[in-house]
Design a protein around this nucleic acid. Structure first.
Length: 425
RNA sequence: GGAGAGGUGGCAGAGCGGUUUAAUGCGGCGGUCUUGAAAACCGUUGUACCGAAAGGUACCGGGGGUUCGAAUCCCUCCCUCUCCGCCA
């Protein structure tokens, strides 16, 4: 959620930003509604504050009359307080309604895109920021997609997942399961080397936590919900890991705070079926190592660069051709100010697969999380950033397809120590 | 799951209906003293909102209630601790 004070002092900048997100003229009126509702809220609070101050004063007066034994003089005062209280009730209702309306309006406004975000309406308008691994590998005629490789070498099984749970819950087995574990360890080790503290968080979170990072109310339908205990299965480690710092006033010396965590991720992905989601391309449960940073506003974009470099190095070590996209205004997530997507080339499917999304949220997330620091005497919101480093399922898909050979699947060198084998056959 | 105890400022801990703008201690910050430090002493030390400022309001686990007045009484929910049961 945007800071109200930012909207007040930078109205034009906000409107320009929303235009990059393809807001229509009518939709832009939300900004005026916000400012108007805030006006109502503030004037109502001023009235209420005066009312309460008067009540308190009168109550103290009654108190001192009691003390001096003049109990007979208190009736008129009591009536005055009763009248004030009646008023206060109405003012309180009015203020609460204005505050709720204001919150609702603020929640409906997405983050303001960074100045470098290109305009655009669809993924076609994303900018290629960097490409690595040219030329793209070409496979021979016998090349098969990863879901067929899975059957051939018995490394994961989606039908068994259907038997146990339902569609989209893969069962990894044998060298496939070992590869999964190897990748998790590799990613965590690399993150640790890069200075991230490893976190093993809960996989279910309460409403407050889901709300603070913005999954609620925006992406409610995307999460699995355990009704009996009112808990959500996490769609990404971002949720519990970032929330570690909810309501924390960080010591400026501790910036940037760098955290990493491995978790399974649970996503309902309602309504997405078809050829594009075959195999591991889109599943309801997948493993992911996430990196999270909480940074000083002055240096957060430098940290974002650092995160891009980190993810790049992982893909290069895995020898996977990739490209980095700078997302356009129309394709960027609701809460992000600037997002880079990483896509790897999946050689048998001959398509790019998104394996990481690295974003700076500036203060949009921290405004709900209340992650702050002291800047001189002032309390300011910190910047939050996160990115996948990396999402496993699609990495596995690309590794299998790109490295298939007549004798089996040759794994990149960097994984040998983790898997204990070089070839899946 | 059952029984009991308890949740107060960064921490410890008092307050149990009316100068509480929450005592006191520790810690933190600033100062005096000192060549420097320690000790001692003095001062200061939460968050949010309204206000140009002066100042005001809210917050003693969350929500609701009683009262002219609630940290204090009542209801309810959550959490922590102890004991019992169950259990990887």
């Amino acid at each position: 959620m945007l800071e109200l004070s930012f909207i007040k002092t930078n109205k034009e900048r906000v409107i320009q930003g929303l235009k990059i997100r393809n807001f229509s003229v009518e939709s832009l009126q939300v900004i005026d509604h916000i400012l108007g509702t805030d006006e109502v809220r503030r004037s109502t609070q001023a009235e209420l504050d005066n009312n309460l101050a008067e009540s308190k004063r009168l109550a103290a007066e009654i108190g001192s009359l009691f003390k001096s034994g003049k109990t007979g003089d208190t009736d008129a005062l009591k009536q005055q307080v009763a009248a004030l209280k009646e008023q206060a009730k109405n003012l309180e209702t009015k203020m609460r309604e204005a505050a709720e309306r204001l919150e609702e309006l603020l929640l409906s406004v997405p983050n303001i895109p960074h100045i470098s975000v290109p305009p655009g309406k669809s993924p076609e308008d994303n900018e290629v920021h960097k490409a690595w691994g040219k030329p793209l590998p070409e496979l021979g005629d016998g090349a098969i997609p990863h879901w067929e490789l899975a059957k051939k070498y018995n490394i994961f099984d989606l039908d068994l997942g259907v038997k146990l749970t339902g569609a989209g819950f893969p069962v990894y087995r044998g060298k496939g399961a070992r590869l999964e574990r190897a990748l998790i360890n590799f990613f965590l080790d690399e993150a640790t080397k890069a200075g991230y503290e490893e976190i093993a968080p809960p996989l279910m979170v309460n409403q407050e936590t889901a709300r603070a990072t913005g999954q609620l109310p925006d992406k409610e339908g995307q999460m699995y919900y355990v009704e009996k205990d009112d808990l959500y299965l996490i769609p990404t480690a971002e949720v519990p890991v970032t929330n570690l710092y909810r309501d924390v006033i960080v010591d400026e010396k501790d910036f940037p705070i760098k955290l990493t965590g491995y978790t399974p991720c649970f996503r309902r992905e309602a309504g997405s079926y078809g050829a594009h989601v075959r195999g591991l391309n889109r599943v309801h449960q997948f493993d992911k190592v996430e990196i999270v940073q909480i940074a000083h506003p002055d240096t957060s974009y430098g940290q974002l660069e650092q995160m891009l470099a980190h993810v790049s190095s992982l893909l290069e070590k895995l020898e996977l051709p990739y490209r980095i996209l700078r997302l356009c205004g129309g394709d960027m997530g609701f809460t992000s100010a600037l997002t880079f997507d990483f896509e790897v080339w999946s050689a048998a499917q001959e398509r790019w697969l998104e394996v990481s999304s690295v974003s700076n949220f500036e203060t949009y997330q921290s405004n709900r999380l209340k992650v702050r620091f002291k800047d001189g005497g002032k309390t300011r919101l910190a910047h939050t950033l996160n990115g996948s480093a990396l999402a496993l399922a699609r990495i596995v898909a690309a590794l299998l397809e790109n490295n298939q050979a007549p004798e089996g699947i040759r794994l990149p060198k960097v994984l040998h120590a983790y898997t204990g084998f070089e070839l899946i056959d």
